[in-house]
Structure formats: structure tokens, C-alpha cells
Design a protein around this nucleic acid. Structure first.
Length: 467
RNA sequence: UGCCCCUUAGCUCAGUCGGUAGAGCAGCUGACUGUUAAUCAGCGGGUCGUUGGUUCGAGUCCAACAGGGGCAGCCA
């Protein structure tokens, strides 16, 4: 057998009379007197191929084996379908079963299951409508990300996944070590510490999984001008919410000779581009999400793809919240970080679409963000989206050596560890900016899926690393 | 990490006041020349998450544990 070069999706555009093989998994079978209908899917598109098994064409025992989940090849003739629901169907003349799926034990049924149940059978859920659509959209979105940056002259760079600097400052980190040895299996497994001395460890010092490629991306931008990362990122926070993962994919563009204004422009163009690409290339999948997952989805995406985002400063947002008359659980005041309820009000009630907030108090943002003239705020921006909250966080970076050194000191960070980061400001420093975008959060936004664990094949969250 | 909720048939769920268990779908048997979550008739299917407690009696009340989920914080 060769790898597949044609798929179920291609069969729909074949001329009636064509003879083809259709490979895939049975989604359902309907029997009538003398005729059976099989819905066949190979994941290549949302629509199933209807395969018609006419009376006497195959032994009854064989047809009965075609239960949900069975893998099969049909050979047959493409014919115009006399019934509604599909333009063409396959009149089967040959049938080969690769692997049966016992209907009494196969967990997927044709009727809907809950997302929570499907998550527990993540290895099988991709065969269903919802997750087939999710992972087609995920793939297409990833392609659109690369296409967007490539068309604008950005270089895709690969920043390290293992980092020995614990100073990225974006959250709790997973240690990477060969000093620990696992003994036993399952519930009996134990860690054995071979050495507590980091100098005896693999890298000769403590090492971690990256929480952000930003600092390294900055070094690459100050040579290649426009770069982006797109890769896995790890946070060891004990976050138990529908929008946090311990392992997720992040996109981080970084631009030299660019201010926060350019950064915001890129963020907006980027989101609109990806959404438009998906509207153009994933129509049936998005249509399904619109019908079954999120009723306002298509309306929202079409609106976002064609209209500009609302811009507000943090200070304006705080004023709007104060004047809103809403009863918030946590009242908001200047200097405090916005709570989820505040973000929701801004995006869902006040604006009704994504909003970009800028110029946050320096105390609640990272040390590397460029200090404003007022000495109180920094050139930060967050893109907040309805339903999702923060989807992008970015800033113009502090390019002035003396101020950056002061900021590192204010944060109580070890200056020596940043020697190479500070070198960027010593040698040919330049205004530059960038942002980080959580790929899975973007996918939640474009699919309407409610839990981030359902837009990645196998989620890693506290207490959960199955598969 | 804090607060809260859930766990009953393969799946989705009912189960009243504590009195020994129900439906739909799936499966099986049959009916129906073309269905689209096909339809119709019949049949089988349960250690009520686990352990302990209260009680004459626990799916139901209590506790611990396990698994799943929601909200919040941390963030992308």
C-alpha cells in the first residue's frame, strides 16, 4: 500500500461514472430492505461519503460487520445521488474490511457524547465530527500563521525549548534534570535523587523548559529584523481553568525598528488574516461549529475579519469600568490588574469585539517593557477577546541600557544573568517590539470550543498527562 | 492553590420523603426498496465511582479517597 494521495474530499468533485477506492472509517450504517447506507469518513473534510450497498451486492454477515469505527476500503462507482444531503455517492462494488470495531465495546456512538467523556478517550475522539473539525482547523490555522509571516518577510526562528536561565519571568517552570531517576511503575513509582548538586546535573546548572522564547527572539530580531517563533511552551503554574495548559503552543513575533503602534497593527492584521484564511478554507467545519458549538461564531468571525479593533489605554479602561455602574466582585482601581470580570465587561458588554488595551502601570507588567515619559506606565498591550479574555500580550521593549538596568534592579532580578540580553542594548540597540499569542486560545476563539483542552490533541494540565 | 458541583446500563440522563432500579440512544432479533441522528415492533443489559459510617433498611444521609467538571487567581 502506498500513502494516500486522494481522499474522500476529492471524491465529491469526481464526475459521475468514475471508478474509485474510498478508504476510511465507518461513522454509521443505516439498513433498509435490500439496501444499506454507510457514512464513510477519512477526516479529509467535514462531509462523510455516503456509500450505497445494494441488495445482494455483499453477504449479509459482511455488511453487519460495518459498524461504527470499522476501517474499510470500498471500491465503486461515483453516481449522482437521488436523495437530498449529498450531490454524489459511491455505489460499492468491492469491500475490504481492515479492522472491525466491536459495537458493544467501541466507546464512540453516533449520538452525541459530552466533551468531558470524549476528552477521556482523546485517542478516539478525532474520528468524530467535532474533533475532526477542530484538528482540521488547527492544522489550517497553523499554516495560515506561517503564511502570514512569510508573506511579510518574517523569518521563522527556533528558540530553545530547554533553557538554563530561570529569568524569563513569565511563570513557574518545569525543571529539566537527569538527577532524578524513576523507580517502579504506576502508583508505586518513586523518584530517587541521584545528586542534589546542580553542577553534577546534565547541564552543570539548573535547567528548565522554556516559558517564552521572547528574550532569545529579541536577539534574533536584532539581526534578522523581523522574526517569529511558533513552538511549544511550558508553564508549571497550578492553573485549573478552561483556558490554561501546562504545555501549549505560542507564536511570538519580534520586530526591530518597530514601536508599540506597529506591534498593535501587526497583532490586528495577524488575527484578521488567520480568521479570513479559515473562513476561506474551513467553511464546512466553521459552519458546524456555528450550528453545534457557538451560535454567534460565524457572525463574530466575519465581523472581526473586516473591522478594526477598539483601542483604549489602561487608564481609559479603568475609567470606563468605574463609570459602568456594574457591580463587580472586585472593584477596579488604577494600579490593579484587571480581573477576568473586567475584561469580560470591556470586550463583551462595552465593545462587543476584540479590544486592545495599552500603557499599563509598570508595576503590573514585565521588567523589559519600555517605560513611558510619565514614568508610571509602560508600552504594553493586551488584546482581549470576548469569551477568551487575553489572547495576545505584547509590548515595545526597553531599548535604553540605563533604564533597563534600573528596571532589572527594581524587580530584584540578577543583572549578571541578563548579560547577553543587556548586550543587545550595548551594541546597536534599536526600538523593537513584539507579542506572544497563545495558539490554543486563538483556536478557542475561531472554533467556539469552550475548553482549551479540547483544541489540542492531548492536553497537559495539573494532574493530567494521559496518552 | 482556594471555593463549589458531578459520578446510576456501552453513551446521555431520570430516580420524589431513606423501602432493593428507569427512559432515550447504542447492541441483539425481526419488519420496511433510498436512508440522512432513518423509522416501527420485540429482547438482553446494573457490585448505583471506591472504602468506611449512620440506619431495621442507603442510589438517596455523613466522612475519606479516586476520577471528572465549573468559577477565581497566575497567564498566552
Amino acid at each position: 500500500m502506498d500513502y494516500r494521495r486522494s481522499y474522500v474530499k476529492d471524491i465529491f468533485s469526481l464526475a459521475p461514472g468514475s471508478e474509485v477506492d474510498a478508504y476510511g472509517w465507518v461513522k454509521t450504517r443505516r439498513d433498509s430492505k435490500g439496501v444499506s447506507f454507510v457514512q464513510l469518513s477519512d477526516g479529509s473534510c467535514f462531509q462523510d461519503l455516503q456509500v450505497v450497498l445494494e441488495a445482494g451486492a455483499f453477504p449479509e454477515e459482511t455488511v453487519k460487520q460495518l459498524t461504527t469505527g470499522t476501517s474499510v476500503r470500498f471500491r465503486g462507482e461515483v453516481v449522482e445521488s437521488p436523495a437530498a444531503g449529498q450531490a454524489v455517492e459511491l455505489k460499492a462494488t468491492q469491500l475490504e474490511i481492515y479492522g472491525i470495531a466491536d459495537a458493544t465495546t467501541y466507546p464512540l456512538q453516533k449520538k452525541g457524547a459530552t466533551m468531558e467523556f470524549l476528552r477521556e478517550i482523546s485517542h478516539l475522539r478525532v474520528r468524530g465530527n467535532t474533533f475532526g473539525a477542530v484538528f482540521r482547523v488547527r492544522s489550517e490555522a497553523a499554516y495560515a500563521v506561517h503564511k502570514f509571516f512569510h508573506e511579510r518577510g518574517f523569518r521563522w526562528i527556533h528558540t530553545p525549548i530547554i533553557t538554563a536561565s530561570d529569568c524569563e519571568g513569565a511563570g513557574a517552570m518545569f525543571a529539566v534534570s537527569t538527577s532524578l531517576e524513576a523507580t517502579g511503575h504506576g502508583d508505586d513509582a518513586q523518584w530517587k535523587l541521584k545528586s542534589a548538586d546542580p553542577t553534577q546535573d546534565f547541564f552543570g546548572k539548573p535547567a528548565f523548559l522554556t516559558v517564552s522564547g521572547q528574550l532569545e527572539a529579541e536577539t534574533m530580531a536584532l539581526g534578522l529584523t523581523n522574526v517569529y517563533t511558533f513552538g511549544p511552551t511550558f508553564r508549571a503554574e497550578n492553573s485549573n481553568t478552561a483556558r490554561h495548559l501546562a504545555e501549549f503552543w505560542m507564536i511570538e513575533p519580534e520586530m526591530a525598528f518597530c514601536s508599540l503602534e506597529g506591534d498593535m497593527k501587526l497583532a490586528e492584521e495577524f488575527l484578521r488574516y488567520v480568521i479570513q484564511h479559515l473562513l476561506d478554507h474551513c467553511g464546512p467545519d466553521l459552519e458546524f461549529f456555528n450550528q453545534r458549538i457557538e451560535p454567534e461564531l460565524l457572525k463574530t468571525l466575519e465581523h472581526v475579519a473586516t473591522s478594526s479593533f477598539e483601542h483604549m489605554t489602561y487608564t481609559e479602561a479603568v475609567e470606563a469600568l468605574a463609570a459602568s455602574g456594574e457591580k463587580f466582585e472586585f472593584p477596579c482601581h488604577w494600579g490593579a490588574d484587571l480581573q477576568a470580570e473586567h475584561e469580560r465587561w470591556l470586550t463583551e458588554v462595552k465593545v462587543g469585539r476584540p479590544v486592545i488595551l495599552t500603557d499599563y502601570p509598570k508595576e503590573i507588567k514585565a521588567f523589559y517593557m519600555r517605560l513611558n515619559e510619565d514614568g508610571k506606565t509602560v508600552r504594553a498591550m493586551d488584546v482581549l477577546a470576548p469569551r477568551i479574555g487575553e489572547i495576545i500580550g505584547g509590548s515595545q521593549r526597553e531599548e535604553r541600557l540605563d533604564i533597563l538596568e534600573d528596571r532589572i534592579e527594581e524587580f530584584g532580578l540578577p543583572k549578571e544573568a541578563y548579560w547577553w540580553y543587556l548586550d543587545l542594548r550595548r551594541f546597536g540597540s534599536v526600538p523593537h517590539a513584539g507579542f506572544g499569542l497563545g495558539f490554543e486560545r486563538l483556536l478557542m476563539y475561531v472554533t467556539g470550543m469552550k475548553n482549551i483542552r479540547d483544541v489540542i490533541p492531548y492536553h497537559r494540565t495539573p494532574g493530567s498527562a494521559e496518552f
